[in-house]
Each structure stands twice: as structure tokens, then as C-alpha cells.
Write a protein that binds this DNA or RNA. Structure first.
Lengths: 190, 190
DNA sequence: CAAAGCATGTAAGCAGTTACATGATTGT
DNA sequence: ACAATCATGTAACTGCTTACATGCTTTG
């Protein structure tokens, strides 16, 4: 359950409730978990059992009781151990690539439409990313180095979408250039 | 279970046994599933129940009985329906980005080492990809268009690793440029 | 003689998602 | 009136992974 480390990361910044963590995950571009209750609340309970976090229960008048989680020294050590451990490859699953790989039965127009749909979702995503970056989600910024890293990670996300979009566009123009032989395109010479 | 469509894709090329499919998944750069038995054999059984594939049982003398799966017309329609449906965003999970985001407690040397480890696994992966491309795994190639698409997908995979490597290197040099303030680097002027 | 390949399948579990359940409060 | 926010939690499910189990054959 590697979301544990992601949670410890947030708690190494400042204390959070489960509800706040959920929003952090949901709002961020790069922490990519859906931020569902099951995982977050479950992981927090387990981290507490393991001694990596403390719980402070804060009853409130007008709202439900908050449980504020804070990282312990042990939690910091675990996080640090993770950072000093193995680097894992980024793991990408791109279903559109699989669709393209098996698109032999599509005619030219249908393939162009598939690529067009892909371009559109990428464009939308890029706009959404830029929007969020413009609004600027709250982030640690405890040092110039940390701010630099966060900025670079966000940029990385956007530019990987942009690279994918450029790839899709160039593939679309290449397959269009191949011309007929797959229906949809009527031959000009003849 | 989207692996169903990936399997239907292979079967739209030619018949396969579960064992062969397993190897296809394991060997390919872009089909990214681990190719574990449970999923493949299970999906094949389900596809058969649903009428998307047929089974031909081939007893052998020296080896266990093979079950050769072939796609049906219904299976082809399902595959086609998937290709004509929604395009999904690529989904990337990059744990190293999360490590970097929470690396504030690391000193300059430790952060450089983290980036270095990341660079190394990326370099290894790039070499492995090139190696496989050079050897050239068997692929459909039923038309120039299909060959083009497969080539572009493979290139995409490699160049996304290369882009990530370039990103890591430039980030490493930027954090090195920031100099002291995080230990590990002794200030020169003074 | 050990390892890898051929070929099937099962068991157990972690990871991750959507949806459900409760219930007051605040904003449109 | 309806939706969103605050805040916790549970249930049911899919997806995916590792490891186990069998047993013969070929290669090093």
C-alpha cells in the first residue's frame, strides 16, 4: 500500500484530517489517487496502529468530530527510508495505444476519429492542468529547493500530455498521408 | 476488466493459447500487463462463456493439451465497438515524483542520489526497449498503416522514457545549482 | 543434474474504485 | 428547495499481483 507513503508525505508537511487528505489527493495533478475514503481512512488507521501517526480528536459544535493526524518520529523515519530506497519506474497504462494497435479493422475515417477523440481528451486535460496551475493549489514551499521541485513536477505532468498530443497529431497526419487502401478515403487519381 | 479487449485484439490477429498470450503480454513494451495466469486464463474462460471466442482443444503427445482460442464474429464486433467508443486518458503513476515532492528532509547529496537512482532505472529501461526493438518482436504488419502505428507506439514508449530522463537530469542540475542550505554542499565563498 | 520451456490451472491477498450511509450547515 | 461542504465510516466489487501446484521435455 504505497499510498501510505504519500500520506506520510503530506503529514510530514503538516497535520491533516482524513477529509483534508482526501481533498489533497483529489485536487492535485500529480498525486493521482482517486482519494477514496476506503483507502485513506483505512491507511490512517493502520498507520496509527503501527505508530507512524498520532490522532488528536477534536469535537466541534456545528460539524462532526475531526480526527487530526500528525506524523511521529517513527513515521518520519519510514518516509525517509522510502526516499532513500529503490527508485521505481513510472508506470503508464495507455488504453488508446492498445486501441490503435488493434485498429486494423477500422477504415481511414474511423481511425482518424479515434485519434481525434484522443486529441480532444488530451487538450481538455491540458487546459484543466493549466487552469489548476494558474489558480495555484496550496503547497509546502518550505525552501526554494522544494518550490522548484514542485514546479518541475507540475510542468512535467503538463508537458507529458503535450508530448502525447503532438504524437497523436503527427500520427494522424501520417496515416492520412498513407491515403487509400483502408476505405474512407476515395482515390483521387484514376 | 479491460484486459479482455487487449486479448480480443491479439485474437483478432490470429488464434492464440493462453500460454502464448501470456508471453505476448510479458514480452511487449506497450501492452504492459504482467501477463499473469489468473487474469488471462480467467478472461479467456469468461470470453468463451460470452461467445466472443471459440476453443479448440489440441491434445499433444509430449506436452500438455493446448487450448487454442479464436475470435468469433461477436468478439470482433465487441472489439470494434470498443475502438469506436470513448478515448481514455493515459494513466501514469510515478512514485518517484511523490518521493521528490516529499524530499525536503533529504540533504543535497541524498536528493542527488535519489535522482541518480531514477536516472539509472530509466537508462536501463531505455536500453532494454532499444534491445527489444532491435530484435523486433513478431507483430501483425497486415498493412503499411498497421506497421506504421506499431512502430510509432514503440517509439512513443521509448521517447517518453527519454523525456523523463532529460527531465530528471535537468532537475538534478538545477537543484545542484541552488547550492547550500540543505547540507551536503559546502559553501565556497566565505 | 539443474534450469528453462511447455501448458494448464488455483489460492490468497493487496490495491483501488464506486457507491452507500449518516446528519447538520451553509450557500445559491 | 437543492446542492455543496464538513466529516466520518462501511460494503461490494474489479483489477492485478505473487506464489503455489502439477508434470513432462528439452537444453546447458
Amino acid at each position: 500500500m504505497s499510498i501510505k507513503y504519500a500520506i506520510l508525505g503530506f503529514l510530514s508537511w503538516r497535520p491533516f484530517t482524513g477529509y483534508e487528505l482526501k481533498k489533497q489527493f483529489a485536487d492535485s495533478l500529480s498525486f493521482h489517487w482517486s482519494g477514496n475514503n476506503n483507502q485513506i481512512y483505512g491507511a490512517l488507521i493502520q498507520l496509527h496502529k503501527e505508530g507512524a501517526v498520532t490522532i488528536e480528536v477534536q469535537p466541534q459544535e456545528k460539524y462532526p468530530t475531526r480526527k487530526v493526524y500528525a506524523i511521529t518520529e517513527l513515521g518520519r523515519q519510514w518516509l525517509r527510508g522510502w526516499l532513500l530506497g529503490e527508485a521505481e519506474l513510472p508506470e503508464e497504462r495507455n488504453l488508446v495505444h492498445i486501441q490503435l494497435a488493434w485498429a486494423e479493422a477500422l477504415d481511414g475515417g474511423e481511425l482518424a476519429a479515434l485519434l481525434g477523440r484522443y486529441e480532444r481528451v488530451l487538450e481538455d486535460q491540458i487546459i484543466m492542468c493549466r487552469e489548476r496551475l494558474r489558480r495555484g493549489a496550496p503547497e509546502p514551499a518550505r525552501s526554494p529547493r522544494e518550490s522548484l521541485i514542485w514546479r518541475r513536477i507540475d510542468e512535467n505532468r503538463v508537458s507529458s500530455y503535450e508530448a502525447e498530443l503532438a504524437w497523436a497529431r503527427s500520427l494522424a497526419s501520417e496515416v492520412a498521408g498513407l491515403g487509400a487502401g483502408h476505405g474512407g478515403v476515395r482515390e483521387v487519381a484514376g
